[in-house]
Amino acid sequence: MLTELRIAGFGGQGVILATHILGRAAAVHQNRFATMTQSYGPEARGGAASAALIVSDEPVLFPYVSRPDILVVMSQEAYTRFAPEVKPGGFLLVEEDLVRLDQRAQGLKIYGIPATRLAEELGKKMVLNVIMTGFLCAITGAVGPEAVRKAVQESVPARFRDLNLQAFDKGLEYGRQLLERGPLTIENSEEVPLESEV
């Protein structure tokens, strides 16, 4: 099985680290094939940050992701740019306080989480990316939670280890509860106009 995912948001939200943690979990702790790429061009400076990951049971041949199965967005700009690329029926995971949905999300399985708020409750806004990794594990099952937990431990400075593990567990728990309620879907485009038309 081959899963393509993209995580995107503002620079500084830890988009690259979150993707790296998931890739490390799959490659090192699940012994699967994982290939991560990130954008390095002028578009990667300032505003939008984005990284992509392919996780597969076979060697990864084509390195780039153009039609992700899973998109995680933590900013409106990232949503606007990348939501149209998600495969029909794919997962759209959003930071629900930062992203307003529109018809671009039509046909996708949408799950929202107030990751920034949850991170602030834990005491540090910067762990929102790790909350998102837990959330992604719970909702999509793309990478195993135990593997990701180990990768989180290995990927953050020792003094922030406990905080990040709490963040991971928080995202995982929130996702598991939300999963029981099922995804939000946008079916009728008339009710949700495009952002530019609002």
Binding site: H20, G23, A27, V28, F33, A34, T35, M36, T37, Q38, Y40, V60, P63
Partner: peptide
């Protein structure tokens, strides 16, 4: 090449 240099794998 750039792709190889910036690509992360095991």
């Amino acid at each position: 090449d750039e792709c190889m240099g910036h690509m992360t794998e095991k």
